[in-house]
């Protein structure tokens, strides 16, 4: 799959290499970059390049958005309920990423399918993170970093990092899908300097 943008960034062109099908989608409502599909290595690197290189003229802002992208995209790859086969013989999560561009800030959002059972602890983590001062959050990150690898709650440190990088609260919402599963959206605001 190849994703490109036209020069005005109003259209996303998605080329599926296997089927040869080209899809064009108009971006709407301040959308700078949007993507829905598998969050595999290849796609992540294309999206990462877009964010790192061309999102904003300010490299510091691009780096912040990039850091947030890496952590949240990995969560989709690992934990999304909806999965697709990847090139390595395993499967990778499917989800959505949207970056909106406003005058003085960006809003970075990701969304993926989940179950109520799996998402309740994540929402509690977000509430917990949002209730902390920056100092407390840094202390919490130090604590989480010393937890042995693979321990439950490893996803924690990613969310803490997102909150610290953005310096803004983690906003989330949950939409009930017709099939009884849920679509979980997490958004964070990144101020332009």
């Amino acid at each position: 799959m190849i994703i490109v943008f036209d020069y005005k960034r109003t259209t996303i062109i998605i080329v599926n290499m296997e089927s040869g099908i080209t899809t064009k989608r108009r971006t709407v409502d301040n959308i700078a970059i949007s993507y829905t599909g598998i969050f595999d290595t290849e796609i992540l690197s294309v999206l990462a390049k877009e964010i790192e290189g061309t999102l904003s003229p300010d490299d510091k802002v691009n780096k912040k958005v990039f850091k947030i992208f890496i952590e949240l995209a990995q969560n989709i790859a690992f934990y999304s309920l909806e999965r697709e086969a990847n090139n390595e013989g395993g499967d990778t999560g499917v989800g959505t990423m949207v970056i909106k561009n406003f005058d003085d800030h960006y809003v970075f959002s990701t969304g993926n399918k989940t179950t109520m059972e799996n998402i309740i602890p994540v929402m509690e983590k977000c509430d917990n993170i949002n209730s902390m001062s920056r100092e407390k959050l840094r202390e919490y990150r130090r604590l989480q970093r010393n937890m042995p690898a693979g321990e439950k709650g490893g996803g924690n440190i990613g969310l803490i990092q997102v909150a610290l990088t953005a310096s803004n609260p983690l906003e989330y919402s949950l939409i009930k899908c017709p099939d009884g599963t849920y679509f979980y959206i997490i958004s964070v605001r990144i101020d332009k300097e």
Binding site: F66, K67, I70, Q74, R145, N146, I157, G158, Q161
Partner: peptide, 12 residues
């Protein structure tokens, strides 16, 4: 210039 959170655990 950049390290993700998984790397930061190893750096510790």
């Amino acid at each position: 210039s950049y390290f993700n959170t998984s790397s930061s655990k190893c750096l510790v």
